[in-house]
């Protein structure tokens, strides 16, 4: 083997190791013991917009207008690295001229060398800005989800706490609570899983379906299509459930011959309003309740505060008539 062969061999070995370094997607630097750059990878040069010539031989902190002279990085290299063989994913946040504020994960490894005690360092720099931003967005989303979940639990708590327990058996309490709970859940399903698709007629049919069997029961007269927004769907589901359970306990649905007619129309006044009528007949004589319980307050409050409308309950001799008048704009 002559000198030229040896040179060629060495050269191809060098070229290969350089091309390995240049193929690694993460920016890499090899530093000597004084933190001067021995090798810079192609990815380092393109990521930080520098040429290899102006990089090699320079002190790390002198590179590119001292953009790497960062206190956090200095601490890593001066204090942490000398005491350990490797530091992985040390986070450095910094404003880099040209590429802006970035979060870099810096890893430092002492260069592996079988023969000598080598003090060179292999520094890899991973741009984690996008990943960190994604993680931060995910945190915000999770926080929002947690907040909504706690709100939903508070709604369930309200139903559990306000459903009457006094004078009832455990079973009766459970059934009354679960009835409201189901109305809440079904309202939530209709409001949020098929957003934008629910219409007043669908909400009525779905909520009143258990009471609509046979000749007696609840009959829905079709009115004009009224698309409903999520919150009004939730409120109306709860309101209708209260009306139906009351009818079942005290009103028209408490006897086999009793009937409820539900109908609605739009008053084309300015502003237009929706008039929803719940009309009971064929039941026992009804009288206004002595005290207004949670159910009554729920209806009144939902209509007034949530939907901006008003409700009239008329205890007629023929049966209870409830008229709910809502501004059309507030239900969509």
């Amino acid at each position: 083997m002559n000198l030229e062969d040896i040179y060629r061999l060495l050269r191809s070995g060098h070229v290969q190791s350089q091309s390995i370094i240049d193929t690694v997607p993460e920016p890499l630097l090899v530093l000597d013991k004084d933190l001067c750059v021995q090798t810079a990878s192609r990815s380092f040069c393109t990521t930080f917009n520098v040429s290899r010539d102006e990089t090699i031989g320079q002190h790390l902190y002198d590179l590119g207008n001292r953009q790497w002279d960062i206190p956090e990085l200095r601490r890593l290299l001066d204090e942490v690295v000398p005491k350990s063989t490797a530091v992985i994913d040390y986070e450095v946040e910094h404003d880099f001229p040209g590429i802006g504020r970035r979060t870099m994960l810096v890893s430092a490894h002492r260069l592996f060398h079988p023969d000598t005690t080598n003090h060179s360092l292999l520094l890899s720099i991973v741009d984690a800005t996008e990943r960190r931003r994604g993680e931060a967005e995910k945190d915000v989303l999770l926080g929002e989800l947690r907040h909504r979940m706690k709100n939903m639990l508070a709604l369930v708590q309200a139903l559990a706490r306000q459903t009457t327990a006094a004078g009832r058996s455990g079973e009766e309490y459970r059934d009354a609570f679960l009835g409201r709970f189901n109305a809440l859940m079904e309202g939530h399903d209709a409001a949020y899983t098929q957003e934008g698709k629910a219409d007043l007629q669908q909400v009525l049919a779905r909520t009143l379906e258990p009471y609509s069997e046979g000749q007696a029961g609840v009959h829905i007269d079709l009115g004009p299509p009224i698309p409903l927004g999520p919150k009004p769907i939730m409120s109306l589901s709860l309101i209708l459930h209260e009306l139906a359970t009351n009818a079942l306990k005290y009103g028209a649905l408490s006897v086999p011959s009793g009937q409820v007619r539900v109908h609605w129309h739009v008053d084309e006044a300015s502003p237009p309003s929706l008039r929803l009528v719940w009309q009971e007949s064929g039941g026992p004589r009804v009288a206004p309740p002595a005290t207004s319980g949670f159910g009554t307050q729920l209806i009144e409050f939902a209509v007034a505060s949530e939907l901006g409308g008003r409700v009239e309950q008329n205890y007629a001799s023929t049966g209870l008539v409830v008229e709910i008048v809502l501004p059309l704009a507030s239900v969509s």
Partner: peptide, 24 residues
């Protein structure tokens, strides 16, 4: 949230508080 508002109102009234609102 109207359900929570009624719940808090009825709860506090039950324990002798006089409630203003609830304001939404």
């Amino acid at each position: 949230e109207f359900l929570i508002a009624i719940d808090l109102k009825l709860l506090l009234e039950r324990f002798g508080w006089s409630v203003f609102g609830p304001a939404a």
